[in-house]
Design a binder for these strands. Structure first.
Length: 266
DNA sequence: AATGGGACCTGCGCGC
DNA sequence: TGCGCGCAGGTCCCAT
């Protein structure tokens, strides 16, 4: 499932691969993924446009175009962008003037593609909290202070802080030694600072390894990311903690699978 | 305000 | 062998 590191990886690869290219044709093989506007307007608005700028906000990719519009892509769980495209089971194919193409794939059809006049007007983007890289520990502490929510669902809340999903929330909490079910305002100042630095560290390390390939995520090239082998708790239920050998536990928090070490995380 | 659950969707792994 | 079930998770939406 693409979270901040996976989307950032794709963003950086897109900059190398398709920035400056002109889109000459868009083939929509599964219209359900086009959320805005109509499929027809989507295709017309993209055809002939040059990709001028590529941005990431939270888990959202934004391709700004020469005609002033933006292609806004949320991969959700199983969305993929692959370049050069192989046109096998793709939901959408983007063809460029140099005769190369890019595939958008999405097994489960949760992903969302939009063509917008101003991506900043997307409600989801308006409501996003800050990027972890754009705040400091003091600000993070202040944000946490007022919240009574359980800490793990809170750091996964995109309106609280942007880009952290289920996997990295679990990993960061393990590294900070904090139980995922703790009330946010029960964390000591020291724990808040540690959690903040571990969120940043975990995300940065994952970006260095080009993301975690669990489920469907692949890099733009179609190759898997390399970070999954460094996971300490995610998807390791029953396996020994890499620090203390206690079996990793799985519970549900906010309806999501939550992995933690009952001994290391208090 | 916070929390829980279901919905969206499909493929996979499990148990019988 | 084959079937049915639960599960996976990002986000939205509704109910409590």
């Amino acid at each position: 499932m693409p979270e901040l590191p996976e989307v950032e990886t794709i963003k950086r690869e897109l900059e190398k691969a398709v920035l400056g290219k002109r889109i000459v044709e868009v083939c929509v093989h599964h219209p359900a993924v086009i959320r805005q506007p109509s499929v027809d307007k989507f295709k017309k608005g993209l055809t002939g446009a040059v990709i001028k700028n590529i941005l990431r906000r939270a888990k959202v990719l934004i391709l700004e175009l020469s005609n002033g519009k933006s292609l806004v892509i949320h991969l959700k769980m199983t969305g993929q962008l692959v370049y050069p495209g192989v046109s096998k089971n793709s939901r959408v194919t983007f063809k460029f003037s140099d005769r190369t193409c890019m595939d958008f794939n999405d097994q489960r059809l949760f992903a969302e593609l939009r063509l917008m006049d101003d991506w900043r007007e997307l409600e989801f983007i308006k409501n996003l909290g800050p990027e972890p890289s754009q705040i400091n520990a003091g600000q993070f502490k202040e944000m946490l202070g007022r919240k009574k929510t359980k800490i793990k669902p809170l750091i996964m809340d995109q309106s609280f802080i942007a880009g952290v999903g289920n996997l990295y929330a679990a990993e960061a909490l393990f590294r900070a030694g904090i139980h995922p079910g703790r009330a946010a305002n029960s964390l000591s100042d020291k724990e808040k600072e540690l959690l903040f630095s571990q969120i940043k560290n975990t995300l940065e390390e994952a970006i260095e390894h080009k993301g975690s390939s669990v489920d469907q995520y692949v890099q733009l090239t179609g190759l898997p990311g390399g970070y999954a082998k460094y996971h300490k708790v995610y998807d390791r239920a029953g396996k020994p903690c890499l620090v203390c050998k206690t079996p990793i536990k799985r519970i549900a928090l906010g309806g999501r699978g939550t992995y933690f070490c009952p001994k290391c995380q208090k």
